[in-house]
Amino acid sequence: MEKTQKKIKIKVEKINLFYGTSHALGDINADIYENSITAVIGPSGCGKSTFLRLFNRMNDLIPGVTINGRILLNGENIYAKDTYVVELRKKVGMVFQKPNIFPMSIRDNVIIGPKHHGTKKKQDLDIIVERSLRQAALWDDFKDNLFKPGLSLSPGEQQRLCIARALAVEPEIILFDESCSALDPESTMRIEDLMSELSKKYTIIIVTHNMEQAARVSHMSAFFMIDDDKIGRLVEYRPTGDMFANPKDKRTEDYITGRYG
């Protein structure tokens, strides 16, 4: 993997997150680089997904969550009081664990985001549909079938449709929350290829259980684990190649060699 000397896109500064009284993430600091893929790895329950959902403030939807600290996106704190979460989520797209396309046609799934944000004209929407589906490698297969129900697609295609739907809003960052865990190996490969392709234009953060996947696609890796007080900690955060070749922390080594989790 190439070593990165890239611009910092997101700065995570001393983030602490609580679900009610339980301390889920403790003192997380990290820089996320632009146009790179950052993999978040670690055993179940270490706070990986919670960490990922910090960036589009999806944790806000859960009752009783408190978050302290700052996350600077393009230098602006997204946890500032005057942040308009809707605007933030336009910039930070997300692809979920299970394909969660809406029970509508392929085309309607792609244009629902742009329509929310005020694009109404058919010609404009047509351009968005073609661009997004091309980016998600779906255009050639479905350009004549845009009105087919999205749910009739295979799971792998559905997940790529979710990517197209996220891309249609023209985000700067895309979050993947274990987006391949429900897919067969071939669909997984196609999505990994897409991630690599998309990382030229977008900043990508993925959560994955799959060590090989992290090694294959990511430039940077962040290893999370809970400490003795059950607080999720960022144990090690380095370029993926370095970290997998010589993990500095004993816990990282145990995890990536399969002795833990």
Binding site: F96, N100, C162
Partner: peptide
Amino acid sequence: IYREASYSLGAT
């Protein structure tokens, strides 16, 4: 998951 998908697209 439908609500999450919608919010993640920046829907109000």
